[in-house]
Computed example of a mutant assay.
Amino acid sequence: MKDRKTEPSDDRPSDVSATGSSTGTAAPSTTAARTAARLAPLVAWADRNPVPGTTLRIVRQLLAVDVRDRVFGMAGQSFLAVIPLLIISSSWLSQSDGRALATALSTRLGLTGVTADTVTLLFSRPEGSAEVSTASGLSLALLFFSVNSFTRTLRRSIEGPWELPKVGWKGQLSGLLGVVLLIVMQVTLAVIAVEWVSTSAAQGFLEGLVRTVVATAFWIAIGRALTHGRLSVARLWPGALVGGVGSTAIAIWTVTVLPGIFERDAARYGVIGVALALVTWLLAFSGLIVLVGVAGAQIARAAGWFTPREDPLVQPLFEQPDPQA
């Protein structure tokens, strides 16, 4: 009975699973081998040239850290942490129950009419509503844990590509400073954009250059804070420059494309549509944060300032790394 059970059948070829000829597709192992063979010349050529080699490593590491999940997770955490923190801060500073923040956002994006009213409705407290101290205390406690979780994610997005070990609660305190610097950077760039009225292409270029320089300086300070001062300015400036250029690109996208998203979503879904438009902006900025950490580390690696434990090009480009490694 045992011999008959292991005997191959005549009407089912034994090599179907190996060749995949019955379905017309190759087996996974064969596909991986063919992909690695096709990519080998490209990887070898890129490794001999600094710019394409560094670019390929940046792409490889972005795939390795699951950039999509990281960006979506960070955007969700920032929506739960940073937006309420801005509303509370605006209410305390201006005594306007969040209306000052809504007005600043509408002015920055050029929103008017129903869209501006919907933004005000999202950020302000309804008229005639009474304050409840118990609910406020619970909200502050939830806000504390949200900010704490967002700070940890933010720190690991910068520390991870540099393979820096965790430093405990001290790093959390400096991470909070990094969050504050991120907010101050956005406020500063928004003020520059509102106050600087460009009437010519030359003035517009100068404005973009000034914003890039200011953002780069902020990104250096943010990197110092998020890494608890363990990376010098000389190592941080390439990633900070990527952040400065990316911040300027997001600023241009914010005033050209994002207002249309706000108007369309507000018209379709009301307050929820404004929240979705805010999440869209947070997704773009979260992607920039992840890119600053990865690009900064890989550029420093190409310059010889940083030697990682493993070379991302050792593995096939599209093969996910072993999580146990």
Rank of each mutant, 00 (worst) to 15 (best):
I192P: 00
F145H: 09
S96T: 15
A40T: 06
T188D: 01
E127K: 13
L241T: 02
L140Q: 11
T54H: 05
V167F: 02
A130K: 13
P52R: 06
T115C: 04
A36T: 06
P28L: 00
L140A: 15
R34S: 10
I299V: 11
V180S: 12
F150K: 10
S90I: 00
V214T: 11
T6V: 07
I220H: 00
I250D: 02
D15R: 07
P259V: 05
L173Q: 08
D47L: 05
T254I: 10
S9T: 12
S232F: 00
A104Y: 07
W92E: 08
P126N: 06
I252D: 06
D117E: 14
S17G: 14
I87L: 08
R38A: 08
G246A: 07
L42W: 07
A32D: 05
A240R: 00
R211Y: 00
A27D: 04
D265P: 01
G168F: 03
S17I: 13
S9H: 11
T216L: 04
P312N: 07
T118E: 00
P312H: 02
L154T: 13
I289R: 03
A46Y: 03
R57I: 02
S200R: 03
V167D: 15
R38H: 09
K166I: 08
A267R: 08
A215R: 02
E131W: 12
R99L: 11
D69Y: 11
G229E: 04
T54W: 03
W219S: 01
I83C: 05
W253T: 12
D47F: 08
P312V: 04
L142T: 09
W196H: 08
A36G: 05
S286F: 07
V292Y: 01
A40C: 05
A40E: 12
T23R: 09
D69V: 09
S14V: 14
T216F: 00
L226H: 02
L122N: 02
S21Q: 10
D117F: 00
E310C: 06
L56M: 10
D97V: 04
V167G: 15
P50V: 15
L154R: 03
L236I: 00
S200M: 04
A249G: 05
A75D: 04
F145C: 07
A193D: 14
W219C: 02
S14A: 14
E127M: 09
A221Q: 02
V294D: 01
E207W: 06
L317W: 04
A104Q: 10
A135S: 13
A193S: 15
Q315T: 14
K170M: 10
V290M: 03
F150R: 11
A116P: 04
L143G: 13
I58T: 02
A141P: 04
E207A: 12
D15Q: 04
R211M: 14
I299T: 01
D69T: 14
V294P: 00
R155G: 03
A64H: 06
A32Y: 06
S139C: 08
S78A: 15
S139M: 13
M185D: 07
V191S: 09
R152H: 15
A201T: 13
V271Q: 08
R12M: 08
Q320H: 14
V119F: 01
S21D: 13
G243A: 09
I261F: 05
D322R: 08
T54C: 09
T134W: 09
